[in-house]
Amino acid sequence: MSDPSLAYIEDLLVRLLNTPSPTGDTEAAIALLEAECQTLPVETRRNRKGALIIHVPGTDTSRQRLVTAHVDTLGGIVKEILPTGRLRLAKIGSYAWNTVEGEYCQVRTERGDLVSGTVILHNTSVHVNRDVATVERKDDNIEVVLDANVQSKQDTEALGIAVGDFVYWDPRVQVTPTGYIKSRHLDDKASVAVVFGALQSILQSGKPLPYALNILISNNEEIGYGGNSNIPPETVEYLAVDMGAIGDGLSTNEHCVSICAKDGSGPYHLGLRRHLVSLCRQHNIPHAVDIYPYYSSDASAAMLSGADVVHGLIGPGVANSHAYERTHRDALKATYDLLMAYLYSPLQG
């Protein structure tokens, strides 16, 4: 990444990935981004849900754009303290238990302490359980064993742990010499970093945007309603920047920007989608158009809430979604290039 903005994107991404922010407990990540905004500088505020809203002036204020990316992630929450002192969890967000089995984690207590542990299957030793390989992983047999000498529920409670405490997965962030970025929660912190890279470039260039821009860093996307409010009435276009899914039957990869034609919520605006594809062709940006069958975005939430806007969805290609994810610097650059080209292009609405 030779462009200073792209180096900034990678640096911010690593810092964000190492800042826990499961849906419902996103204060630290939002505060980190607020501090970034102060260094740029740019006008910000929070909505009542705790999301961050950034306003960037433009030549035309009567017609505006809104770009969103979400900082909330998957995680867990303590559902029950077992008689053994281990924990049962409830999921935050949608994922399969096998994607976190064996993962290190931290439990944050009400008083702010962090207690480390590991997510395991009950009776996980092959030396005493012949069914380890075949047993279904489900809510009542996945447990957190704490890194503390606890033998009872009372021992665990003495650590300050209680029902409702949030549990953070270890992101295990790695940036390889070949340019791959491996971590949990690239969905959607990769996109947040890209949006901030574009924001930095716009502010440093001094080149005014053709239309005023509002950026919403949402904090409830993983549970379906992060971007369904705080949409200014002047908004004509609403673009969600979220991970591009990779899998069988799809053409997106870790080296391009993905443009979504349709997801589980239905088709995205045809005119805006064609405009985004045209910008990629015009600027030689690696891209793919795909349909995500089991997916929705903050733009979907906006439409379901009745927003009268043109809506679209783009994002870097991310492999292994809602597990231990991976992308590449190429995908970050392609998404950044498309976002920059889009923000200086004519409205489609």
Rank of each mutant, 00 (worst) to 15 (best):
M303V: 15
P267R: 12
P286N: 03
R88F: 10
D188K: 05
K91E: 01
D25W: 13
A190I: 07
K153C: 12
Y324K: 00
T84H: 08
I77D: 00
V132E: 02
D140L: 10
M303P: 00
K262R: 11
L146D: 01
P20T: 07
A334D: 03
Y336L: 00
R45V: 11
S321F: 15
D155I: 14
L276T: 05
G50V: 02
H311T: 07
V135A: 15
K49Q: 08
S201D: 07
V132T: 13
D147R: 09
R329K: 13
T134M: 06
V163H: 08
S5H: 12
G227A: 14
L343A: 05
N228Q: 09
Y180L: 09
Q174D: 05
L40N: 04
R45L: 11
T19M: 01
T44L: 04
R281K: 15
S258F: 13
A323K: 02
D139R: 13
A245E: 08
Q151E: 07
G312R: 00
V14P: 00
V128L: 13
N123S: 14
K49N: 07
S278F: 15
I54Y: 12
D60C: 13
D248W: 12
I77K: 03
L66G: 04
R130P: 11
R137Y: 15
H287R: 00
S297D: 01
V128T: 15
V67Y: 08
G197N: 04
S125A: 14
I215Q: 04
P4A: 10
N123L: 11
E101R: 09
S345M: 06
V100Q: 06
Y211Q: 00
A190K: 03
V277K: 05
S300I: 10
D308S: 15
H311P: 01
V78I: 11
P177R: 05
D170Y: 15
G75A: 11
E222C: 10
K333E: 01
